[in-house]
Amino acid sequence: MTLLTVSGLRKHFPLKKDLLGRGGGTVHAVDGITFDVAQGETLGVVGESGCGKSTMARLLLRLIEPDEGLIRLEGRAVGTQMPLTEARGKMQMVFQDSFASLNPRLTVEDSIAFGPIVHGLPRAQARERARSLLARVGLEPLRFAGRYPHELSGGQRQRVNIARALALRPKIVILDEAVSALDKSIEAQVLNLLLDLKVEFGLTYVFISHDLNVVRYMSDRVIVMYLGKIAEAGPAESVFGDTRHPYTRALFSAMPSMDPDRRTQQPPLIGDPPNPIDPPPGCRFKGRCAHAEDICGRGDITLTSAGAEHRVACLMTQPGSGHSSAPGKAA
């Protein structure tokens, strides 16, 4: 069953010009993104800085107003058919920076109870819920409920953030680089916790990360983003096993080999990811792509099916696209 549908989501940020009229331009942070999330699955979103994955997370919760696009939750359009407050109770978010995402002046218990109180739960019950959630995320309520964020370690703070996100009994939790700032041994603990909570509360995750390993470990389906657009999307086995987009392939080869005898010899890409400011038409990746041809700069490249549910935005996978490596029409 489809829980969340996102169609044509777009957000551009105009840049300010300086006094001499220089600068300006528009950041194409999220540029027409369509996907859906099924009940109970984990959708992984992977990409490098500037690909728009964090903006997308904030757009989903309407923390930023989208320029265009429609978000449907349980079949109802958020903002029109479903009030924002209701949607925000059903969708919650865990941020990367565990410290900045907790109010330093509130105890852990008050931070968790805040959401339920706002939604009208009596104070005592909200505190009760906060304590039981603390226990559930592995923090002994008697020891931790009255503590302040600075008295906790990074891993403990992120557990509190997860408890806070669960306090409204959401359907979907958006995890925006939620484990990226943690040490490896703590990251593993938190990932295990997330997997347990998902089963226990019947959650659906949108798991955003720059770390391919973590995304692959967590996700049922994966979206690869590049400069505000989806480059490749599909079931995890398919995207990771039968990678079609040259950018996704480059991301894979950029991962350390983890084998001292098979160290990486050639960098898969040269240079830095460009800024998403006023990108030229055509494929966003063509400037760094080894297979780029003239045709890649003409017109928009659409996501096209490349097998069951696997979609790729690359002319090389589209029969008759005019790219020299494109499969023949017959195929």
Binding site: K184, S185, E187, A188, Q189, L191, N192, L195, D211, L212, N213, V214, V215, R216, Y217, M218, A236, F240, M258
Partner: peptide, 14 residues
């Protein structure tokens, strides 16, 4: 405890 994508479906030994 270093996460490897191939281990999907198994618990990480944290």
């Amino acid at each position: 405890s270093t996460v490897r994508g191939e281990l999907r479906g198994q618990r990480i030994e944290a």
